[in-house]
Simulated assay, not measured.
Amino acid sequence: MEADESVRDVLAANLRRVRTARNLSLSGLSRLSKIGKATLSQLESGAGNPTIETVFSLSRALEVPISSLLDQPHGGGLTVVRAADVEVLRGDGVDLRALRGIATGDTVVEVYDQQVRSRQESPGHAGTEHAVVQAGRLRVRVGDHEVELGPGDYVGFDARLSHTYVAVEGPVRSVLLLHHTAGDRVGDAPRPHVAG
């Protein structure tokens, strides 16, 4: 993202583009996302204050990867994302910096710098979620399974399952990857597999 373009501006342009491509009115998107029409209007005008929860709701409702809403197109063979140039998207207990969406064919990998401050719950979303803890201790609950991770530890799971991140020793810094393929939908998800 360019230093002079905020996450609000990028979200506004992308949200309007995706919504109109889906032939959805603001009222229709409001019904699907359970976000008020006035709030959606503010987001599309760049005046809103988006949270992680809002962006995830829009992603689910529009059935697009989060990067479709937060990424700017990148050109050339080298992409550099400076920490100071990426605005933090805040949630109840997590701060995310969207670094890059990488599309290859029908596959998208979204790369985030994640800081878990307290507790963040997700009802589930399309794709596979991967996290590598860089600092702190992180408790991850996926469905009925719970695991605690430390620096260097990895977890991966079907993101359609409800999941929770909790900072045990925090704040916890991690790299978060979301992997999507065409046709990924929230719905009946398989049970999580936990390796020792």
Rank of each mutant, 00 (worst) to 15 (best):
L11W: 00
L78K: 14
E146G: 13
H193P: 00
G143K: 12
D184C: 00
R119L: 07
A195G: 10
G48K: 00
V155P: 03
V140I: 02
L40V: 08
R17D: 04
N49F: 01
L32K: 15
V140C: 04
A84M: 10
G187P: 11
V109T: 13
R160A: 07
R19T: 01
V116E: 05
V108K: 08
G28S: 08
E169A: 13
G136C: 07
Y112S: 07
Q134E: 14
R100C: 00
D184I: 00
A83L: 10
H125R: 09
D144T: 08
V175K: 06
D188Q: 14
L69S: 04
H125A: 05
S162K: 14
A159Y: 02
A38N: 11
G93K: 09
S45W: 08
G150H: 15
T39C: 02
H145P: 00
S6V: 10
V7N: 02
D9T: 09
V186G: 08
V94W: 11
R60P: 09
R185C: 03
I66M: 10
A167H: 06
D95P: 09
L96Y: 15
A159C: 07
Q134R: 12
G101V: 06
V194T: 12
P123K: 12
H130E: 12
V166F: 02
V86I: 14
A38S: 15
G124A: 07
E129D: 15
S25W: 14
L43M: 14
Q42H: 13
A3Y: 00
L26I: 15
V133E: 11
G156E: 14
Y112R: 06
E129S: 14
H74F: 08
R137F: 12
V116T: 12
G75D: 13
V116H: 08
V7Q: 02
K34I: 02
D9Y: 00
G28M: 05
F56H: 01
R90Y: 04
E148T: 15
A61T: 05
D153P: 12
P123W: 04
E121I: 05
P73N: 06
E53A: 11
P192C: 07
L15Q: 02
G28Q: 11
